[in-house]
Amino acid sequence: MSQQASDILITILGGSAILLFLGFTLIFLIIVYRKKQQEFSQQKTLLEENFKKELMQAQLETQEQTFHSLSQELHDNIGQVLSLAKLNMSVIELNSKGPSDESISQTKSLLNTAINDLRDISKTLNTDYVKEKDLAESIERELGMLRRTRKFEAQMSVKGNPFFLAPERRLILYRIVQESLNNIVKHAGATCISVTLDYGAEALTITITDNGHGFDTTLTPKGVGLLNISHRAAMIESTVTINSAIASGTSVSIKVDRLNNGRS
């Protein structure tokens, strides 16, 4: 075979092979690209569905917790106040000299307290309350309920400039705080609770601290409550840190990035 023929042969075979390879590569890349896109879309749909499901669950739990607090509030607070008002009325009835100004104003004051408390309860019954209200306001309301039991000293502080949080994320955060407070009430044996909302430039850090008997984080297995907290925190792309030691109280810290607020 002449040199010329050999050159042409190499050109034809080499060139055709390169072009064929490019054709195969293009087809392969298109198939892989479509598959990846489909996988990504399926994952996205699944995540969205899970998020919605969790949101519903959080909403239901919030309602359940609210009803529980409500029944306590009605029994321990409003019920007591109204009973006292009724007792005052009976004393006024029995008093033959006629009602004194003092007992009438006392009864009025009791009825006013009952009315105010009922107003608070009607706000609580609104299921969209948490979504509509500021996070600090919702947490303060929760702490107010704890204070009214007279078993806890509860305080809250807000640092920095509050920024917008999507209602869904607000609800999940509120639910995490509610769950943490519930844990304190049930297990910590604490008398002082403090909640700090620290709005930084990049993130919001919520810290819930108590002066309870604490626990060894390495030895104590995570209960349903703590697992729920971790799971929900991961769902809104936030991180939870629990610091505790025996006889030194517990501190739960939730950090939410500001940049992730767009997710709904």
């Binding site: 023929a5 050109t11 054709g23 087809i27």
Partner: peptide
């Protein structure tokens, strides 16, 4: 898929075929 393999793959055969036939018909 057939087109993207066939047409670029035969381009050089069409282009240089006549020349190749003159140089070495058997090949």
């Amino acid at each position: 898929c057939g087109n993207i393999l066939f047409y670029p793959g035969t381009m050089l055969l069409f282009g240089l075929g006549n020349y190749m036939e003159h140089i070495n018909s058997e090949l």
